[in-house]
Amino acid sequence: MTHNALDKAVATLMRETAEKTLLKHYQRLDVSAITAKAADDVVTIADTESEIMLAEGLAKILPEAAIVGEEAAHADPAIFERLSDSLCWIIDPLDGTNNYAVGKPPFGILLALAEKGETVAGWIYDPLSGRLCTAHRGQGAWVNGERLTACTSGADKPIAAISVVFVDKDKRAALMEHIAPHYTLVDIPRCAAEQYPRIGLGQNDVSLFERTYAWDHAAGVLFLNEAGGKAARPDGSPYRVDRHLDPGLIGAASPALFDDMAERLARI
Score class of each variant (00 low, 15 high):
Asn98Trp: 00
Leu224His: 11
Ala231Tyr: 10
Ser86Ala: 13
Ser254Pro: 08
Ile61Glu: 01
Gly69Gln: 00
Ala231Lys: 10
Ser153Cys: 13
Ser50Phe: 02
Asp40Arg: 15
Leu257Ala: 10
Ala121Asp: 04
Leu29Pro: 04
Ile34Thr: 13
Ser207Gly: 12
Gln139Phe: 11
Thr21Leu: 02
Gly229Lys: 03
Leu58Cys: 04
Ala59Phe: 02
Pro197Cys: 11
Glu210Pro: 03
Leu110Cys: 02
Asn204Asp: 15
Glu177Leu: 08
Tyr26Gln: 04
Lys60Trp: 00
His25Val: 03
Lys157His: 12
Leu265Met: 15
Asn4His: 12
Lys24Thr: 12
Lys157Leu: 15
Pro255Thr: 11
Phe258Asn: 01
Ala5Pro: 10
Gly140Glu: 12
Ile52Met: 06
Phe107Asp: 00
Glu56Met: 07
Cys88Val: 14
Lys169Ala: 15
Met176Val: 05
Asp41Tyr: 05
Cys191Gln: 06
Val102Arg: 13
Ser153Asn: 05
Ser163Arg: 06
Ala227Asp: 11
Lys20Tyr: 03
Gln195Trp: 09
Leu22Cys: 11
Cys151Tyr: 02
Ser207Tyr: 05
Lys37Trp: 04
Pro238Val: 09
Leu265Arg: 12
Lys60Met: 07
Ile67Trp: 04
Asp259Gln: 14
Lys230Met: 15
Phe80Tyr: 15
Leu113Pro: 00
Val167Asp: 08
Val102Lys: 13
Leu208Ala: 06
Pro93Cys: 09
Gly108Ile: 00
Trp89Met: 01
Arg240Ala: 01
Arg198Pro: 03
His74Met: 07
Ile34Gly: 11
Lys20Glu: 15
Ala5Ser: 15
Asp47Trp: 03
Arg264Leu: 13
Thr152Ile: 10
Tyr26Gly: 05
Arg190Met: 13
Asn144His: 11
Ala141His: 10
Ala161Cys: 12
Leu148Ser: 04
Ala218Glu: 05
Ala266Phe: 02
Leu245Pro: 01
Trp142Gln: 09
Asn225Phe: 09
Ile52Val: 13
Glu81Val: 00
Leu222Glu: 07
Asp246His: 11
Ala5Lys: 13
Ala75Met: 11
Ser237His: 06
Thr152Lys: 09
Ala78Gln: 12
Ala231Glu: 10
Trp123Lys: 06
Cys88Ile: 05
His136Ala: 15
Cys88Asp: 11
Val102His: 11
Ala38Thr: 08
Arg198Val: 01
Asp168Cys: 08
Met261Ser: 02
Gly145Met: 07
Lys24Arg: 15
Gly96Asp: 11
Pro255Arg: 08
Pro181Phe: 06
Val165Ile: 14
Lys230Phe: 14
Glu64Ile: 06
Ser50Thr: 01
Tyr125Pro: 06
Gly220Asn: 02
Leu58Pro: 02
Ala192Gly: 07
Gly229Tyr: 02
Leu245Lys: 14
Asp259Leu: 08
Gly57Arg: 00
Ala173Ser: 12
Trp89Ala: 01
Tyr26Ser: 05
Thr149Ser: 14
Pro105Gln: 01
Pro106Cys: 04
Ser84Val: 00
Asp216Ser: 13
Asp76Leu: 06
